[in-house]
Nucleic acid binder design. Sequence first.
DNA 1: CTGAATCCCCAGGGATACTG
DNA 2: CAGTATCCCTGGGGATTCAG
Lengths: 121, 121
Amino acid sequence: MTTGENCGELQVALDIIVGKWKPIILFHLMENEKLRFSELQRAIPEITKKMLTSQLRELEYNDIVHRKVYQQVPPKVEYSMSPYGHGLKPLLVSMRSWGTEHLEHLEKLYGKDNEEQKEQI
Amino acid sequence: MTTGENCGELQVALDIIVGKWKPIILFHLMENEKLRFSELQRAIPEITKKMLTSQLRELEYNDIVHRKVYQQVPPKVEYSMSPYGHGLKPLLVSMRSWGTEHLEHLEKLYGKDNEEQKEQI
DNA sequence: CTGAATCCCCAGGGATACTG
DNA sequence: CAGTATCCCTGGGGATTCAG
């Protein structure tokens, strides 16, 4: 087996949770059970409808989130983690804690004002 | 605590391993102990020098990989996982296995020919 | 051999307006 | 309310060239 051969699978996993908005969307859905489209919008004020829609659609395609449409007027749509999607939570949590520790590590390396140094790359 | 508040940490973790080439670079370095610049190039033929350099620089800044320069002519540079960087391996491996399982899951959902359907999003 | 510097392109997002 | 549809712009990468 050549090295890095099965790296595509990692990429697959990344594609699910990468995207400017997917992480925050996922955390909101992890902590809130059910959220309407407008609730997600209010929770993430900077996101546009277009982006929210597309990110949710991708997550839905990957069976991470479930989309429940209430046939009524005015429309009502609820998003939630799918049963399968819950299997992603441990990974999400692990990544978040690694990120937290990494921030501290960077601080040790470069000091508190590491933002400027980051620019210099 | 408002929901999604600490999502930035997840983003931090993602920024490390995201990038078209970082995953494959990391797997090569995980499995090979030490690799020269040109060896990485040969291992990943499609990558350009520019990209390889920039991705390695970012990984180096984050103390994931170590860069050892031999002061000699012709130049020789060896890249390897840093001691700290090894702490990322479990996460990488977890993500890869999740990715593997997810591919099977998608296959169950959409069948073997899921590439076409993916286009339809 | 290991990069740095330039130029260039296009797809991923943002802003805005419209619709069932 | 929950999206589409359009237009537009930026920057992440690719190709190529130069350099120590």
